[in-house]
């Protein structure tokens, strides 16, 4: 509860850009949660003829199969949000825990963890993700796992270095001398210290995951019948001669705008959070 209050106070400290970003993310979240009710038409069944231009019936037009694009974008928001949150939480929590252990215990654990992060950081993530995506097969769950596998290293490293310095703080040493154990120290002293820095990297991961999913789907590695934004784009640009027709005006512009809007909004939030965190340190 204390953290939530703190968070609300922080949001008040956001710039106008940050607040706008927050609003956009909330809207997308809203779209994702209530996607079935926000659109008159189904997202997975044809509801008109192919390539209807945007109009009163189909707000953003229809695609080649005659499926309403607004409905697909609403549903795509859900996919993007699930993947964004899923990856960010999985990688954020997992990475932080690994970082805390590595920083606190040091020694062999630290060495192993740091070498593993080195290896993963060196691996170019997009090509490896393409290979893993092709190997494990499409599906939202697999994409989250693959993305998380490649993103936990950033929070892990940041947290480890933070823990290394916090560990030496006098109050932590004192608590330890009074017999405080690892879990007590983590919850009582480490978490409040690392939370702000983890926040920043988690928000970054969030947008990275959304873009990566869109990228994988765009390359045709996503689930071929899911309706993520990347996949709508994939179908659109692979339609023969789309740029010589009028269809791109709604079929490509809609989902691209959605991705850009969301990612830019997250970037603004990230910038503000970083500012607030930095001023505290």
């Amino acid at each position: 509860m204390k953290y939530v209050k703190q968070g609300m106070k922080n949001i008040k400290g956001f710039t106008l850009m940050g607040k706008t970003g927050m609003a956009v993310v909330c809207v997308v979240l809203f779209l994702g949660i209530f996607s079935d009710r926000l659109s008159v038409h189904p997202y997975n069944l044809p509801s008109g003829s192919a390539f209807e231009a945007p109009g009163p019936v189909h707000w953003l037009g229809t695609d080649d199969l005659g499926i309403d694009l607004w409905a697909q974008i609403c549903f795509g928001a859900r996919v993007s949000m699930i993947i964004g949150f899923g990856t960010a939480l999985l990688a954020g929590i997992g990475g932080s825990l690994i970082g805390i252990c590595s920083g606190y215990f040091g020694g062999l654990i630290d060495k192993i963890v740091m070498r593993v992060t080195d290896i993963i950081i060196v691996l170019p993530d997009l090509p490896t993700m393409i290979v893993l995506g092709a190997f494990f097969g499409p599906g939202i769950r697999n994409i989250i796992i693959v993305l998380a596998l490649f993103s936990w290293t950033v929070p892990a490293r940041i947290v480890r270095s933070k823990i290394l310095s916090v560990k030496e703080e006098k109050y932590v040493v004192a608590a330890k001398n009074y017999g405080a154990k690892f879990w007590h120290l983590t919850i009582r002293h480490f978490l409040p210290n690392i939370l702000p820095v983890v926040m920043v990297s988690v928000i970054r991961l969030f947008s990275k995951a959304i873009v990566a999913e869109a990228g994988l789907a765009f390359l045709g590695l996503g689930d071929p019948t899911s309706k993520s934004w990347g996949l709508i784009l994939n179908h659109a640009v692979n339609f023969r001669g789309i740029y010589f027709t009028d269809y791109w005006k709604w079929w490509i512009v809609g989902p691209s705008a959605a991705i850009m809007l969301l990612v830019t909004a997250i970037a603004f939030i990230c910038r503000d959070v970083e500012k607030i965190v930095n001023s505290k340190i």
């Binding site: 994939n234 179908h235 023969r240």
Partner: peptide
């Protein structure tokens, strides 16, 4: 099972529906 060309994936989708 289909190929991954746009046409094939779209045919598959319509068949599914």
């Amino acid at each position: 099972l289909t190929g991954n060309s746009n046409n094939e994936v779209r045919i598959a989708e319509l068949l599914k529906i």
